[in-house]
Design a protein around this nucleic acid. Structure first.
Lengths: 187, 187
DNA sequence: CGAGCCATGTAAACAGTTACATGATTCT
DNA sequence: AGAATCATGTAACTGTTTACATGGCTCG
């Protein structure tokens, strides 16, 4: 692929697992090439222009295996939405409600999109996956598909947890506003 | 609090929602002070040493309200574990198993810890929360506690989603290794 | 008096985002 | 001919991590 191809992959399904914008991609490809993990080749595009097509090298595959086998040290948390939720008492209830409604709508949409990708992967209806399977012995196909589907099942689960949490929050806000109304009526 | 006090808070329950290491904290406090959001005061510590004690200003509270009300644009994904899981076919099944077992153990522990904090907040058994309630009218206590508990319920949910996903993955690996054993026996 | 804690910094490197910039190609 | 897309870069900035560094305080 070219850097541009990668960029488009990140806009799409691959981007739901990992993402990078183009000013990160192009220099990184050069670094990977210097390290010997990919090989770049200048190919013509039209009559005057050209583009740089990259392929993974044997050393790159070895490095990939090493990276996947490497145990991941868990990162410390930085969660803007939960941070805000911790301080919802500083804003009116309807501002908190707006925040949670947006969070809910966003992750409902995410669940829908991720689940759709998962189903398409399961059905092997993805260009990237097809290209991958085409260069792999058929005995390995089921395993490869299963791992991609599993990864997407994970991001669906995470998005679903956000949906459930936002719904829990909206119920809480409902209860709190009833309480404060009761309070006002009593006063 | 001093920068050091904040640092310790981040090591602890607050750190499960947001975290910063000390080289970020001290300069940031100075910047917040320059912006007028906190006021720093030099206080003696022992006979020769001193420390810098910060308090939030009215402008700081206003800014906090603004930040909490501000709608959060969702960040693009960067998920190292799901990225690895997508490429598990590049490593032996038992390497993948080790990865998922670690993931599972880590998030099982996280669920335990987060749930414990949630229960303690609910019981108002937390120094930070007590200090907060002490300077707040009693009518607001229930709301404040409810929001903290809600935020922690969210991080519990997220950690639980990781646990469920890792378990799903271990079941998948079990199935795949049975299939490949059957394959070998057949060959 | 030594260990462990309290307290605060600087420097360098790395990761990631946003803005600015250019030019060819392809399709309508 | 103009719009949308393909293709690739640089620069500046912000955020985050890791390493290096210092010194007083408290308790046993």
């Amino acid at each position: 692929m070219t850097g541009f191809d990668l960029m488009r992959q990140f806009d799409d399904s691959v981007g739901y697992v990992w993402h990078a914008p183009h000013p990160q991609i192009y220099p990184e490809l050069r670094r990977l090439e210097d390290a010997g993990f990919v090989a770049g080749e200048e190919v013509p595009r039209g009559t005057h222009a050209k583009k740089r097509l990259y392929s993974i090298t044997d050393a790159g595959v070895t490095e990939l295996r090493r990276l996947v086998a490497d145990v991941e040290e868990p990162r410390r948390e930085r969660d803007p939405m939960r941070l805000k939720a911790s301080y919802f008492e500083y804003v009116p209830l309807d501002v908190a409600r707006t925040q949670l409604e947006r969070h809910l709508a966003y992750f409902e949409e995410r669940v829908r999109v991720y689940e759709e990708v998962r189903v398409r992967l399961q059905a092997r209806d993805s260009d990237l996956l097809k290209a991958r399977l085409a260069i792999t012995p058929e005995a390995d196909h089921a395993t490869i598909v299963a791992f991609k589907v599993f990864a997407y099942a994970g991001i669906v689960r995470r998005a679903q947890a956000e949906v459930d949490w936002a719904r829990e929050g909206l119920v809480l806000l409902e209860k709190l506003s009833e309480t404060s109304l009761a309070q006002i009526r009593r006063d």
